[in-house]
Amino acid sequence: MNKILINALLVSEKSSGIGNYGYNLINSLDRLDLKYDISSLVQKKIESNNIDIQIKQCSNRYHRILYEQIPLRRNYKNYDLIHFIDYSSPIIAINTPFIVTIHDLSFYKYPETFNYGSRRIKQILAPISIKRSNKVIADSKNTKKEILSRFNINESKVKVIYPGSPSYNKIEDIRKLEAVKRKYGINQDYILYVGTIEPRKNLLRLLEAYHNLLKQGIKEKLVIVGKKGWLYEDIFKKVEELGLDKQVLFLGYLPEKEKVALYSGAKVFVYPSLYEGFGLPPLEAMSCGTPVVVSNSSSLPEVVGDSGIYVDPKRADSIAQGIYDLLDQKKLREKLSLLGVKRSKKFTWEKSIKNILEVYDKIL
């Protein structure tokens, strides 16, 4: 039986983005009767019946990267195929065939939204991973297009496989919703954002847009859910500068159940990101029946389709108008809620895993 290792070290106790991708990949594979001997390297305990879960705790991202580049590299020879869920293949070439999932190239498109260390590491490792890999999996058509425009590789080497949507459903039990709202001091209707707090997510313009909406008389609070990323200090300074301390709630990283409750209870979900490789939070919100306002750029139109309101992420007034239109029109919210639930069902991990296993099959 061929042996496969999934390097999913970004799966940790507070996973977001790529870490969530890895977690869902592992869980979805574990449900199947596999013809491969699959192991996965992660940073937290995962219950598994069919996959060998190997845990390696790393103190920070630099510790993780160093471990991947030196000690872990020696182990790759013990496998027939490696799947990197991020651009983390070793700088010193390995003989084992490997696949890399590329989620986005934001560090090229918006380098100013990364700190210097993170940007340089990604710009070094991404070309190596893409060029040496046997196959590149891209999260979206937009990501594939950008890979092909930047790197001199054959179009057939890159396969688009959309991630699946989590199995979220709208929570209808008002008592459960109110319990979570009380816990976090939410005592009125609210606009919700979920995602890492970092410049690429465009929260500075969201705060400006929200400030303008308050001037127009809206009463909803702005609730921001997600852990701090990098270069987040200006975001908190902007809240103070605009005098929004009482209107904007930063709740940090939340457990899945509480996050689903907040999605379900939100009047509007807003995601004005400058750039996304896929864009999972809007899909999560749509699964819960919450109407979404998203950027009209990168991969987001692929995900949201005709089920949301699109705005120009580089204009605070456009973001404000998109939010206002949804807040002001109940029938539009109801329409997009239904369309969003329907749209979210197109993205399943069953489909994703089927396509990923086909990639494994062709290499092995």
Rank of each mutant, 00 (worst) to 15 (best):
I4P: 12
L5D: 14
A8L: 13
L9N: 10
L9C: 11
V11E: 07
E13D: 15
K14L: 03
S15R: 15
I18E: 08
I18P: 06
Y23E: 15
L25A: 08
I26S: 08
L29M: 05
L29V: 08
L32G: 09
D33Y: 03
K35V: 09
S40K: 05
V42S: 03
I46R: 05
E47W: 06
N49K: 15
D52R: 15
I53Q: 11
Q54K: 15
I55T: 10
C58W: 12
S59N: 13
N60Q: 05
I65C: 02
Q69N: 02
Q69V: 01
I70N: 09
I70C: 03
P71G: 01
R73F: 06
R73N: 09
N75S: 13
Y76G: 03
K77N: 11
P90R: 01
V100S: 11
T101P: 00
K109V: 14
K109Q: 14
Y110A: 02
Y110C: 05
E112Y: 08
N115T: 00
N115F: 02
S118T: 14
R119W: 11
R120I: 14
I124Q: 08
A126P: 03
S133V: 01
S133A: 13
K135R: 15
V136T: 07
V136P: 00
I137K: 03
D139F: 08
E146V: 01
I147G: 01
I147D: 05
F151A: 09
I153T: 07
V158W: 02
V160W: 07
Y162R: 07
Y162N: 13
Y168P: 06
K170Y: 04
D173L: 05
D173M: 06
R175I: 09
R175S: 14
K176M: 14
K181N: 13
N187L: 09
D189Q: 03
Y190I: 12
N202A: 05
L204H: 09
R205L: 10
H211E: 04
N212H: 12
L213R: 04
K215M: 09
G217W: 07
L222C: 02
V223Y: 01
I224N: 08
I224R: 10
V225F: 10
G229I: 00
L231W: 03
E233P: 04
E233V: 00
I235S: 00
L251W: 13
G252A: 12
Y253N: 15
Y253I: 06
E256D: 12
V260G: 08
V260A: 12
V268Y: 03
F269V: 10
Y271Q: 08
S273P: 12
E284R: 06
A285C: 07
C288R: 02
T290I: 05
V292L: 08
V294K: 04
N296H: 07
S297M: 13
P301C: 09
E302F: 01
D306C: 04
S307W: 10
Y310R: 06
P313I: 06
K314P: 00
A316C: 00
I319Y: 01
A320S: 12
G322N: 02
G322V: 00
I323L: 05
D325K: 12
L327N: 04
L332T: 10
L338S: 15
L339C: 00
S344L: 04
W349G: 05
S352T: 15
E358R: 12
V359F: 00
Y360D: 13
Y360N: 11
D361R: 12
